[in-house]
Amino acid sequence: MNFTLFRRRSAAAILLASCAIAPMAVHAQNVEDETQTDEAEPQSTGAIGSLNTIVVTGTKTQNAENVQDVPVAVTAFNAETLDALKVRDVQSLTYSAPNVSLDDVGTSRGTANFSIRGLGINSSIPSIDPTVGVFVDGVYLGINGGVVFDLFDLESVEILRGPQGVLFGRNVTGGAVLINTGNPTDYFTGKVSASVDGPFLDGGRGGANYSVSGVVSGPIVEDTLLFKLGGYYNKDEGYFTNLFDNSNHGEAETKIVRGALEGRFGDLTVTGKLDYFESDGDGPSGQNRGRFDRDSFDFAIDFPGFYANEIWTGSLNAE
């Protein structure tokens, strides 16, 4: 048997086996052909299981590093992987990151109940410090309220298992979640997407859930000043019918507006980002079932409650 051919077939077999058992978020290094003399160009197609390069910034080194080269327990997702996994909100990443739970607390919509390696809290009280820190473009979100928000137009998401106090300070005993929004591009591009779910048909309960988002990016001054502008809107009409007044319960409305400017001045690149998030709606759909039929979805409450979250984040980065 030809030795070179055997080596290539073995490498391909090993690569296919590793892709079958490894999480799709993990970067797979490009396998170079033994017979080639030129360096292979990395490919990034964004399809699940493709050989795309994923880099991390959570180590806070001068340059972003390959996820397989950093001495940190990290699960990283680039933009192509996030699109392939159809990630809609932070909770969706729970299914793709081992030993990580990024769930909602349940009693207050949008409030985080995050835990990594079993370290977390279960409370919607704002004064209780989290054990998993969330950072948006390097800006720390200091409380759990409003953290479980919808995601769109992301550059990457990095989940670092803790403790991470050396690099990120307090409240990261369990770990850190780094959310990096998209950067401006040096060419004009845009994207619009929309979706509609429901309404549910079990006895006429519930309404539709629909969302729309759009992003436009490009140069203002060619090779010097770039911009990006994005917006997101989601309307959830609620799953439950409140039998007290026959209204929908569980309604929620979420808005996100995001802008970025990037200036390139020789060897210096300055990027500024501003992000506004607002979400409000009904309180939790909870009712005492101790004396009633526990198998029923009937729901009646005279005061629906409410929640309201508003978050501003801004960042300025110079390289």
Results as ranks from 00 to 15, higher is better:
V136M: 11
G49M: 00
I220D: 00
V100L: 05
D295W: 12
S315Q: 05
D236Q: 05
S123A: 05
G204K: 01
T131M: 15
E65M: 14
N183F: 14
G182I: 14
F265T: 10
K255F: 13
G58K: 01
E262V: 12
A300D: 05
V139G: 00
T173K: 11
F3D: 09
R8C: 06
D280I: 11
A318T: 06
G230K: 04
S18Y: 12
A260S: 10
A20E: 05
D38G: 10
V147R: 02
A76P: 10
K191W: 11
V67W: 04
S18R: 12
V257E: 02
V31Y: 11
L151R: 10
L243E: 09
V157I: 15
A12V: 03
A73Q: 09
G272T: 03
V157W: 04
S213G: 08
L16I: 08
M1N: 14
H249E: 08
D38M: 14
V212M: 11
L102G: 01
S124F: 06
M24L: 15
F188T: 13
P199G: 04
L151T: 06
A17S: 14
H249P: 07
R8K: 07
A97M: 10
G118N: 08
S247W: 04
L5A: 14
Y276N: 08
L268C: 09
S96M: 14
L51G: 06
R161F: 08
V87T: 02
F3A: 11
G133Y: 07
V31N: 06
D282N: 07
V90K: 05
S195C: 12
V100C: 10
D104V: 01
T271Y: 00
G230H: 01
Y187E: 05
F292A: 13
G207T: 00
N248Y: 13
I48M: 15
R88M: 12
G49F: 01
V216G: 13
P71D: 09
D236L: 08
L85G: 08
D223T: 09
S50K: 01
T111G: 03
E278N: 07
D280Q: 15
V139P: 01
A25P: 10
S96W: 15
G203N: 15
E222F: 13
M1E: 11
V87C: 02
E253C: 04
F114E: 00
F188G: 11
V166W: 02
D275N: 11
L51W: 07
G106L: 03
T4Q: 15
Y239I: 07
A97G: 09
F227D: 01
Q62L: 15
V177N: 07
V139K: 02
Y233I: 12
P126A: 03
K255W: 14
V147M: 05
G175R: 08
K191G: 07
A84F: 00
V157L: 07
L268N: 05
I179G: 00
P130S: 06
N52Q: 13
E253N: 10
L16N: 06
S115W: 09
F152I: 03
T57Q: 15
W312F: 13
F277H: 06
A176I: 15
S127V: 15
T271W: 00
V177R: 10
N317Y: 13
F297A: 14
G214H: 02
F227Q: 01
V212S: 08
I143P: 02
V134D: 01
N2M: 10
G190L: 09
Y187P: 00
G118V: 11
H27I: 09
R258C: 04
K273N: 05
T111C: 03
A28L: 13
D223G: 10
L274F: 08
V72R: 09
G314W: 03
V90E: 07
